[in-house]
Simulated scan of single mutants.
Amino acid sequence: MTSAPLSVDEAERAAAVFKALGDPVRLRLLSNIASSPSGEACVCDIQDVGVSQPTVSHHLKKLREAGLLLSERRGHWVYYRVAPGALAVMAQLLG
């Protein structure tokens, strides 16, 4: 952002990421997943963030749509991991 002006596409992408991160529950979910020792987390392990399970699913969907998370269904559970490069892109935008 400080080395060159953002293009229209870059600004739209950054706005989508910041919008997704503009909710404390989403920040906690992303942090729980990113800090998991295995690099991924089952929704069953991260749903204790003070909201109902359907609300957790809604927030995880928003993080996926913003390109911050990847998900994989394994049996009854869905496992989430931070999308490759997602944290680096955010750091670059803020750096």
Score class of each variant (00 low, 15 high):
residue 76 H to V: 07
residue 72 E to C: 05
residue 48 D to C: 07
residue 48 D to P: 10
residue 52 S to V: 09
residue 89 V to I: 00
residue 2 T to D: 14
residue 32 N to V: 08
residue 17 V to G: 00
residue 6 L to Q: 06
residue 90 M to W: 05
residue 1 M to V: 06
residue 95 G to N: 15
residue 18 F to Y: 07
residue 70 L to C: 09
residue 21 L to Y: 01
residue 23 D to Y: 11
residue 7 S to T: 15
residue 24 P to H: 10
residue 62 K to S: 12
residue 20 A to W: 00
residue 7 S to D: 10
residue 55 T to Q: 15
residue 80 Y to K: 04
residue 11 A to E: 11
residue 37 P to M: 09
residue 78 V to C: 08
residue 65 E to C: 05
residue 44 C to T: 13
residue 59 H to N: 14
residue 31 S to W: 09
residue 61 K to Y: 09
residue 21 L to E: 02
residue 13 R to C: 03
residue 49 V to H: 13
residue 17 V to Y: 02
residue 41 A to R: 10
residue 73 R to P: 01
residue 15 A to L: 06
residue 84 P to Q: 02
residue 74 R to A: 05
residue 51 V to E: 09
residue 89 V to H: 04
residue 12 E to V: 05
residue 72 E to F: 01
residue 39 G to F: 04
residue 24 P to W: 12
residue 64 R to H: 10
residue 38 S to V: 15
residue 5 P to W: 08
residue 84 P to H: 03
residue 83 A to V: 03
residue 19 K to V: 07
residue 70 L to H: 08
residue 13 R to Y: 06
residue 62 K to D: 12
residue 15 A to G: 03
residue 81 R to F: 03
residue 28 R to W: 01
residue 50 G to M: 08
residue 73 R to A: 04
residue 71 S to R: 10
residue 42 C to I: 01
residue 67 G to Q: 03
residue 86 A to L: 02
residue 54 P to A: 01
residue 56 V to K: 05
residue 83 A to G: 00
